[in-house]
Each structure stands twice: as C-alpha cells, then as structure tokens.
Design a protein around this nucleic acid. Structure first.
Length: 357
DNA sequence: AAGTCGGGGGC
DNA sequence: GCCCCAGACTT
C-alpha cells in the first residue's frame, strides 16, 4: 500500500506547469458537454493526433446532440470510418438518442445518469463532467495510470482489480477541490508529453521532487506490464466484382463481432494455395470472368492479423444486390461505414485503374 | 480475470 | 516484432 501526500502537494506544481506547458485542443475550454462527450469517445484508446483528424469533421456533420440523434446509424458509421472500435460510434449514436428522448436534449450532469449512457464508463463520466462543469470527479486513463504509478510507486499491474482500485483512490485523493477540471487535463498532458511510457523527461517534470519512482530509479519499471492476447493470423481472399458501369459489389458484415455491420468486398477465408480457387468461387456467384490477381493486403488488428489476397473480376451485370449487398460507385464510398482493411483492399484492386484517373 | 473490439505510431 | 494509446463491455 502506498501513502499519498496531501492533494495540494501534487496539484499546485502540476497546475502551475499546466498554465505554462498545457496543450491546446479544440475541445478545451468548452462549456457545452456535447462536443466534450464526442471528443472523449473519439479519444478512447486512440491517440490525440488521430482523434484530432476526426473531431472537427464529426462535429461539423453532427453539430448538436439533436442532429446526431436524428441521423441514421449508417451516417454515423460513415463519419467514423477509419477510426476503429466502431462500437463507440454505435454507442455514441444510441446515447444521443437517449439524451434527446429521456433527458430533453440535455447531457445529464449527474454522474450516475451520465454513466448509464452506452459507452460512457467511469473514466468518460469524470472526463466530461470535470471538463464541462468543473465537477470534482477523478479520471483514470493510461496517462493517469502511468503518472500515479510512478509518483506513488504502485507496483502491481494496473489491469488487476485491486491495483485499479488503488489507482482510482489515488486519482481521487490528489484531485484538488479548487480546479479539478484543469487538474485532470493537466495530469493527462503530463503523461502524454513528460511522463511518457519510454524515455520520460523527468528533468522537465513538475513532480520530480516527490516522485517515488524517480527517487528509487524505477521509472522504467512502472507501471508494470499487463498481459496481452495472442495474435491470431488469418488468410483471406477478397474479390472486387465490377460491372460494366464501373460499380462494384460490397457486402455488409454481420451485426456483431469484428467490424460489425461495416462494408467489405465479398471475401472468404483461404490460404495461399486455396486463394485462386476461392476467388473463382466468389466470382462465379456473379457470373464474373477475367479474374485478375491484384496483390496482397496486410492488415493488423490488435489481436488479429489478416493477409488478404485481392482479386478483380468483371461481371455481375445481371446480379441484383441482396439485402446486405450494394453496388457502389467509387464516389459513394464516403457514405458507407468502411473499415480501413476494406479501403486497403479496394485500393489494391483498383490501383491500376486509379492511376489512370 | 480474461477476451473482444481498430488502427496507428514509436522503437 | 512488441508496446501503447484521453476505455467500455461481455463472458
């Protein structure tokens, strides 16, 4: 068990540092909880640099919670395309509808109620309410875990329940009554820019004098590593079947599981030896001919690695798209929920064609 | 407690 | 290759 110094011991130097060295983001300083909510969902398990590319376009497309609630899920997934963890988009959309229907369009200020929205866990509740309303609620994300683990020498792996409880307790204990909103932002900035996973810049850290990991030369050991799922390798084939008018067929994936309800080229599992035959079988379903191999697309998910052999075929002009299928033109891709792996495969299939444009 | 769920960037 | 990221949710 660790012994935390008084809250002000941490807060005062950290807030002073934040005044000087804090980062500026488009969601900082806002009082409307809706854009802050959007930013926090976008940033879940996502680097700020990546989230920044999606935040403003998303808000431009869905400027209010009412607009988001009125949109279709397909529109929201289209705006989320390439960002990953697509359940976040589904939950945000469902949450917006709940806010409009149940709370009159006002994002709840009650942590209990806010936490009932899908996709809004304890971290996100604290992040939204402390930033928008300066409510004194702690947050615990990867940055905060790293800072607290080092400053207070928390040795256990942070994915263990007991360690997580201790870290939440520390996050609450160091949280000042004065400016909890700024403080939460400050800890995350510190974790992102100074107290980094590797090569922390302790010389520029406002907490260096009270950091126990620094005192014991243990910054490199903390936080303790967590267990990781083993990567599964899968080999697939995908076929871009193109009609005379240039449109090609996309299929919607099942509504649950990996890339749920997102669009992809007709595909199947097949290793290198079986790829050609599997591609022909797919093309045959649309009376496709002129099968051409277009290359291999590698794509890594967190715990899965897909090797996709991409083919292109002519055909399908007499084939009517089923309920989970759609003949699409290149210009329509922006309207669809299209994961990055699909975009890569389509680009590979059309590479020769695209170079002519 | 472990697994699922994307994608990108650093080393 | 491995690690991590402004996590939440299911099993």
């Amino acid at each position: 068990m660790t012994c935390a110094p008084p809250a002000e011991t941490v807060a005062a130097p950290l807030l002073a540092w934040y005044e000087r060295s804090g980062r500026q983001f488009p969601w900082r300083g806002l009082r409307d909880p809706y854009p802050i909510w959007v930013s926090e969902v976008i940033l879940q398990q996502t680097r700020v640099e990546t989230g920044l590319r999606y935040f403003e376009p998303f808000l431009a497309r869905f400027p209010t919670v009412q607009v988001l609630a009125a949109a279709s899920e397909a529109e929201v997934l289209a705006a989320w395309s390439g960002l990953g963890f697509y359940r976040r988009a589904r939950n945000l959309h469902a949450g917006a509808r709940l806010v409009v229907e149940r709370f009159g369009g006002e994002v709840p200020r009650d942590p209990e109620l806010l936490g009932e929205l899908p996709g809004v866990g304890r971290y996100t509740v604290g992040a939204i309410l402390s930033a928008a309303f300066n409510q004194r609620l702690p947050i615990l994300d990867g940055n905060v875990i790293r800072v607290l683990s080092r400053v207070f020498l928390v040795e256990g792996a942070p994915d263990r329940a007991a360690v997580k409880r201790e870290l939440w307790g520390l996050a609450e204990a160091v949280l000042p009554h004065d400016r909890p909103g700024d403080f939460n932002q400050a800890v995350m900035d510190l974790g992102a820019t100074v107290c980094t996973p590797t090569g922390p810049r302790c010389g520029g850290c406002p907490l260096v004098d009270l950091c126990r990991a620094v005192a014991e030369g243990r910054t490199a050991d903390l936080p303790a590593p967590t267990k990781r799922a083993k990567v599964v390798f899968e080999q697939r084939v995908a076929v871009l079947v193109q009609r005379e008018d240039g449109r090609f067929l996309l299929r919607q994936r099942p509504p649950s599981g990996l890339l749920a309800s997102l669009w992809e080229l007709p595909a199947d599992e097949a290793d290198e030896d079986a790829a050609q035959q599997a591609a022909e079988d797919i093309a045959d379903g649309f009376a496709g001919g002129l099968l051409a191999a277009c290359g291999v697309v590698e794509h890594r998910f967190s715990h899965r690695h897909w090797t996709t052999r991409v083919f292109r075929a002519r055909g399908g002009d007499g084939y009517e798209a089923g309920p989970l299928e759609r003949w699409v033109a290149l210009a329509e891709l922006g309207e669809l929920g299209l994961p990055t792996v699909s975009r890569k495969a389509i680009e590979a299939a059309l590479a020769a064609q695209l170079r002519l444009i």
